[in-house]
Design a protein around this nucleic acid. Structure first.
Length: 273
DNA sequence: AAGACGTACAACCGCCAACAG
DNA sequence: TCTGTTGGCGGTTGTACGTCT
């Protein structure tokens, strides 16, 4: 651990040997939070020097963005977030920061970790590459439909099922790692600030009329069979998994709003407010 | 009970683009 | 225009912790 905390191999730079590495302590966190609250979160090298922290500016920035920022959302990835990650990754590839923009409170690091630990693990189980056609087809035709089914099935503060239980098509697959989504958690488009919350929360907590549900507003039609990977809903047309990053890429807004629209149509369990 | 193994996630690294001087 | 600095990003690694044998 001590080796990890010290940059030991640069004797030529006295300052560098003083740079701390490794896990942040509570004291360091407190100093950084206090300093940022006063001076703002810019000029990280200046912050690192002026605060007295023996950290690099980069390290301070990362700690703030990924952990200390007040709007960082912690806890397990929800079903909706899983769906968004899979879909956005299919559109944009490993552009984690871009994907994170559409998952408020989630950091690129968290999404990247989720992808590596959960999704890539499934590819390993299938004995195929995460970029292979087989894996993409499995994700498109098995996991994502099941995610939509689960989202549809949610009617109260929800349980979040891990990806591994979705690899099988057995509908009776038990949920082995349930977790609770914090009531009142909201997701919104970063540009338009339109929030959408589970309908169950709305009905319980707000005065919104039924006519304000998203599918009503949008005139959306619930697809009775849930997720349609290649047909009526249009997912399949555009979701060319082999063309990520190619000429078929959409603009950011086109991609996001198409996806948002599809998700809302298919789950019919969200509403804007 | 203890060691091996697997998982989750915090943190670092290297590269690159933007920007200021 | 050039150069150094800074911040952003994706990839990778290290470690704590849980589970399995």
């Amino acid at each position: 651990m001590e080796d990890y905390e010290r940059n030991s191999n640069s004797p030529a730079h006295e300052e560098d040997s003083d740079v701390r590495k490794g896990p942040w302590t509570e004291e360091e966190d407190a100093i950084l939070v206090n300093f940022v609250s006063i001076h703002g979160d810019a000029r990280w090298n200046h912050i690192a020097r002026s605060s007295g922290l023996k950290r690099t500016g980069k390290s301070c920035r990362l700690r703030w963005l990924n952990y200390l920022r007040p709007d960082v959302r912690r806890g397990n990835i929800t079903l909706e977030e899983q769906f968004m990650i899979l879909k956005l990754h299919s559109l944009w590839g490993n552009r984690w920061s871009k994907i994170a923009q559409y998952l408020p409170g989630r950091t690129d690091n968290e999404i990247k970790n989720y992808w590596r630990t959960r999704v890539q693990k499934q590819a390993k189980h299938l004995r195929c590459d995460v970029n292979s056609h087989l894996f993409k087809e499995t994700m498109r035709n098995v996991w994502m439909p099941r995610l939509v089914e689960r989202i549809n099935a949610q009617s109260s503060p929800t349980t979040c099922e891990p990806m591994e239980s979705m690899i099988t098509t057995d509908p009776g697959q038990p949920i082995d790692e349930p977790n609770t989504v914090e009531p009142g958690s909201v997701r919104f488009h970063p540009h338009h600030h339109q929030q959408f919350v589970p309908a169950s929360e709305l009905s319980a907590t707000s005065s919104n009329s039924p006519a304000e549900t998203f599918s009503d507003v949008q005139g959306g039609v619930v697809n009775g069979s849930g997720y349609d990977p290649v047909g009526q809903t249009g997912f399949g047309e555009f979701n060319d998994w082999d063309c990520v990053g190619g000429d078929n890429m959409w603009t950011d807004d086109e991609s996001f709003w198409f996806l948002q629209d599809q998700l809302c149509h298919e789950t019919a369990s969200y509403s804007y407010n």
